[in-house]
Amino acid sequence: MSTPKAPAGHFTILYFAAASSYTRKDHDFLPAPLAFHMLFDVLDQKYPGLREKVLDSSAVTVNLEYVDMEEEVAKKDRADGSLALKEGDEVGIIPPVSSG
């Protein structure tokens, strides 16, 4: 799968497996910046039911590194704030894996 580059002011979000079936896409470009803890709200609004069916059991990567979702949500009200998704970032929604 080769994903086109995000347009200016956007980041890329990649959907795999169940996430791809539910959204019927393999990627979207979303406006940047976006506070990481808002990501699931934005996605669930765009695809109602996605959170319950897919996101709650998925992990998330940003630029190929896993992000600790609970930690980011906990940080949102602190001075250092949660991670911000920036223009050009690549975010992956990683449902439970099933290789082998």
């Binding site: 795999f16 497996a17 169940a18 079936s21 992956g92 990683i94 449902p95 439970p96 894996v97 099933s98 290789s99 082998g100």
Partner: peptide, 20 residues
């Protein structure tokens, strides 16, 4: 761990599998 996903296809459609 590996970020690879299996779809099993039945006569009436496909289903994602989870190892976990």
């Amino acid at each position: 761990k590996a970020e690879i996903w299996k779809e099993e296809w039945f006569e009436d459609g496909g289903m994602w599998r989870s190892n976990r």
